Simulated scan of single mutants.
Amino acid sequence: MYEIKDSKPFDTDEEDFDTVMASDISFTGNIRFSKPFMIKGKMNGTIEASSDLLIDTNAEVNADISTERVLVRGKVVGNIKGKKLVYVASTGSVIGDISSAQVVLEPGSVFSGKCSMSGM
C-alpha cells in the first residue's frame, strides 16, 4: 500500500468557510467570491474565485470552475481550472477537463476528461 502525503489539502470543516450553500439550495447563475466557499446543494452556471472552493459529498455542480484551490467530494460536470490545486476525493467525480499546478485523484474517485499540470 502507499500513503498519500498531504491528503487533507485545506480545512474542510463547515465553520472554516465564510459562505456555505446549503444542501436544500438549487442555484443557476454565476458565482464570484474571494473568501472560502462551500457548496452542499446543486449549482448550474460558472464559478470564478480567488479563494478555496469545496464541493461537498452530496453536491452536484454543472459549471466551469476557475479558482485557487478546489476540493471535489461531490459531482462536477464541467471544466476545472485550479491555480494551485485540484483535489478529487474518493467520493468525488469530475466529468470535464482539469488544469492546475497540482492535481490529486484519490483512489476511488472518478475522472473523465483531459488533465494538464503546469506551474500556472
Rank of each mutant, 00 (worst) to 15 (best):
K83F: 14
T57Q: 04
K35F: 06
N62R: 03
D16N: 09
E60Q: 09
I65D: 08
V61Y: 00
N62F: 10
I31H: 00
P36Y: 03
A22K: 08
M38G: 01
K84Q: 15
E68G: 02
E3I: 14
G74A: 02
A49E: 05
V20D: 04
K5M: 14
K81W: 11
D56N: 11
R32S: 10
V72Q: 03
S26T: 12
F33H: 01
F33K: 01
F10Q: 05
K81S: 14
G45L: 07
N30T: 13
E60D: 10
T19D: 01
F27T: 13
D56W: 02
D52I: 08
D16Q: 11
S26E: 13
M43Q: 04
V86P: 02
G29F: 09
I47A: 01
K83S: 13
G82T: 06
P36A: 15
G78W: 09
D6M: 14
K5P: 15
I25C: 05
G45S: 01
D11Q: 14
I55N: 06
D11F: 14
I55G: 01
N30Q: 09
S51G: 03
S26H: 12
E48K: 10
G41S: 04
E68D: 15
I80Q: 01
F10S: 06
D64Q: 11
T19C: 05
E60R: 00
G45W: 13
T12C: 06
V72P: 02
D52K: 12
F10M: 02
S26V: 11
S51P: 10
T46F: 07
L85Y: 08
S34Q: 03
A22E: 14
F33P: 00
G29R: 07
I31N: 04
S34I: 08
I4G: 04
N30R: 10
G41Q: 05
L54Q: 00
A59M: 09
E3L: 08
